[in-house]
Design a binder for these strands. Structure first.
Length: 496
RNA sequence: GACCCGAUAGCUCAGCUGGUUAGAGCAACGGACUUUUAAUCCGUAGGUCCUGGGUUCGACUCCCAGUCGGGUCACCA
């Protein structure tokens, strides 16, 4: 492989750049006054054969030179439009300058709309400006429509390079842009849903002196001036609940959480979480809210043409199954009555990795995952988790060994997790102490005691329902996209 | 972490049971062409065949190790 400096393709581009300068043409402009986007220009022509004068700008994505004429396609955010350059229209000097234009250049053109004899809306160009000379070619493939389906030839398909060079991936793949537009619209819809119900969007610390609210290994960093370790948050939960103590009755946050764990097609170390908390509500209220929110999210995805078909048609209420009953049914016995040794033996039979190292709650959870979770394809609420698995959830009314907690599963994956939030500071302290014991016994994911959070709760925390929704996975479920890297613009990669 | 697959021109790929100057299409460069659309036609240039060992008269090709990537499975409440 040649180095960039020696590469003949780059060299040719650079020579054209220099030739533009010699002709007194700036290769990099300050702006361009557009009258139409590409799509708007096509629409402006309508069914007519001759149309108005337009100024359009974008990237040259195809070029067909033909002696004293040339055809090109110009792409912008809205779509693409064909350009027709004719020497008689442009004059000798400008037509010669066109030879310095390449696929990938960003240009602006002025001209009148017309329809070619093959029926395509086209700009008959009378003036063209270089806006940004592309010194490094973009790997545009050639495209054709076969039986109404776009077929791309060559192009840019190396998965690694596509994720590493997302700017290139986006520039040459409109369908990738469409996925991220859909993601953005879905997040807007989530905000609109919560805003309309009186929730206040807030921002809580990403850098935290203690991490909590979930079971995961954190990223650790160090603050120089304070000379203390700080952790990137693994959840927003404990700060949002402090805000409810402070008098904000309904809050939510959409932000990144960070978990220092493996990377695969459903896990990125940095991912987007929506959490909300509503005072005076319990987990039953949250179930209804989650159903409504999912319907709103699915509608927003279905409104995107690229995903109109993919988005599932949700019909609340979703089925509710009891955690204990589901696990008992799968194991054929009462799971909570099993001894630690029996649980461990069951874990071995279920191919759970390293069962000897797991605490009792983790064993139960592993068994539930192995036997129940992955069977849940249609959206399903799993209710009432054992208290050992849920240190931040209130005991279930009438069954104190369980908690008022649910998780929503769909497509075999967890989409949401919610509780009637524990607001008894004395109980919370006992739960933290139990976690601390598990931690001391080697459970890396058990939490410690967060005294500052306990102090906030001791001032009086209203009863509330709270929910966490994994946004990346929700979007994957609603679009049918199977790899988390395809829903995160810049997924975490090993450095080159 | 386990198993399978892959790495060759800027991009997408071919290269047989080992054989001497490593190919194609696109992109690039030169030329022809004033309604093309995977434009077409003629010509030119472009390579550390991932890295390191080994086998062999000879390795892009076979073997070993490594690196990186992809897929599947497992793990990650």
């Amino acid at each position: 492989m040649t180095t960039d400096e020696q590469n003949f393709v780059l060299k040719a581009r650079r020579e054209k750049h220099d030739a533009l300068l010699e002709r007194g043409i700036a290769p990099y402009a300050y702006g361009f006054r557009r009258t139409h986007t590409a799509a708007a220009a096509v629409a402006a022509l309508g069914a007519a054969d001759e149309g108005e004068r337009v100024n359009v700008a974008g990237r040259i994505v195809a070029w067909r030179g033909q002696g004293k004429t040339s055809f090109a396609h110009l792409a912008d955010d809205s779509g693409r439009i064909q350009l027709y350059f004719r020497k008689d229209d442009l004059g000798e000097a400008l037509f010669e300058t066109l030879k310095l234009f390449d696929i990938g250049d960003v240009i602006g053109v002025a001209g009148t709309l017309f329809r070619t004899k093959t029926g395509e809306a086209t700009v008959r160009v009378s003036g063209a400006e270089m806006l940004a000379k592309s010194l490094r070619p973009l790997p545009f493939g050639k495209e054709e429509i076969v039986n109404g389906v776009l077929v791309r030839h060559s192009g840019f398909s190396d998965p690694e390079q596509r994720y590493r060079q997302r700017a290139v991936d986006l520039a040459v793949h409109p369908e990738v842009r469409a996925a991220f537009v859909a993601r953005s619209r879905m997040i807007s819809a989530l905000r609109a849903f919560l805003d309309a119900r009186g929730f206040l969007e807030v921002e809580t610390p990403v850098l935290q002196p203690l991490y909590g609210g979930a079971a995961a290994r954190p990223f650790t960093t160090h603050h120089n001036a304070l000379d203390i370790p700080l952790y990137l948050r693994i959840a927003d939960e404990l700060y949002l609940k402090r805000l409810v103590v402070g008098g904000f009755d309904a809050v939510y946050e959409i932000g990144h959480d960070f978990r220092n764990e493996g990377i695969d097609r459903t896990h990125n170390p940095e991912f987007t979480m929506l959490e909300w908390y509503q005072a005076y509500a319990d987990y039953s209220d949250m179930m209804v809210l989650v159903e409504q929110l999912l319907v709103a999210a699915a509608e927003s995805v279905r409104a995107q043409p690229a995903f109109a078909e993919a988005a599932p048609k949700l019909r609340p209420p979703f089925p509710r199954v009891q955690w204990v009953a589901a696990l008992d049914a799968a194991l054929g016995t009462a799971a909570l009555a099993m001894s630690d040794a029996e649980l461990r033996a069951a874990a071995v039979r279920a191919d759970v990795a390293k069962p000897d190292t797991l605490s009792r709650p983790r064993l139960l959870d592993e068994l539930f995952q192995a036997h129940v979770e992955r069977t849940l394809q249609e959206p399903t609420f799993v209710l009432d988790y054992p208290v050992e698995l849920s240190p931040l959830a209130k005991p279930k009314r009438g069954a104190p060994e369980l908690t008022e907690r649910f998780e929503l599963f769909a497509g075999g994956r967890e989409l949401a997790n919610a509780f009637s939030e524990l607001n008894d500071p004395l109980d919370q302290r006992r739960r933290f102490e139990a976690q601390a014991e598990l931690r001391a016994a080697g459970d890396e994911e058990a939490s410690g005691i967060d005294e500052d959070y306990l102090r906030a709760m001791e001032h009086g925390m209203p009863p509330m329902g709270g929910v966490g929704v994994g946004i990346d996975r929700l979007f994957m479920y609603l679009t049918g996209i199977t790899h988390i890297r395809d829903v995160i613009l810049f997924p975490t990669m090993r450095p080159e």
